[in-house]
């Protein structure tokens, strides 16, 4: 747009909303995707039934600031660590904000956070709360 001195950086928060594993319910993921878009974020939606590898590939290549994983199947304890290990392999764990949405029992939450999940948003979380969290915690790069 201009010489570099006067050029203003156009930073937009990039997010990926991912559905992992054998779970065909993506109403929630779609609602979040749309709300994120309306909040001015760029959202990449993964589509259904993705393997952890695919999510990692997409998150790395798209260089997303935020990875939101939606899981309603109960397999979060195996799937989420796999995704995070994959991010680590590509050096992307440190500066990707990983969020989990869906039905996560209270007793599993600490373990997920230890794995590197920044926040967990269960059913009924107001979408504004999630957006606010992203705005405040999206990594500075």
């Amino acid at each position: 747009m201009s010489t570099e001195n006067t050029e203003t950086e156009e930073r937009t928060v990039r997010c990926m909303i991912a559905k992992v594993g054998l779970d065909g319910h993506d109403r929630g993921a779609r609602v979040v995707a749309r709300a994120f878009r309306d909040a001015g974020f760029e959202v990449i939606y993964s589509g259904l039934h993705k393997a952890p590898d695919e999510i990692v590939q997409a998150a790395v290549q798209e260089d997303v600031d935020v990875l939101g994983i939606s899981i309603l199947s109960g397999a979060h304890n195996t799937l989420v660590p796999k995704v995070i290990a994959g991010l680590e392999e590509y050096g992307a764990k440190e500066d990707t904000l990983v969020l989990v949405g869906g039905v996560i029992p209270e007793e599993d939450r600490e373990d997920l956070k230890d794995e590197g999940v920044a926040a967990i948003f269960g059913p009924g979380t107001p979408i504004e709360e999630t957006i606010e969290f992203v705005r405040e915690n999206a990594p500075e790069r």
Binding site: F36, I44, G47, E54, Q61
Partner: peptide, 26 residues
Amino acid sequence: FTGGAVLGDRIRMASNVGDMEVFFRS
């Protein structure tokens, strides 16, 4: 209006999943 966008083309890249030799960027 908001500058936001939903980028959905990636969904169709079914044949190359997990293949890092295909670099797809939205």
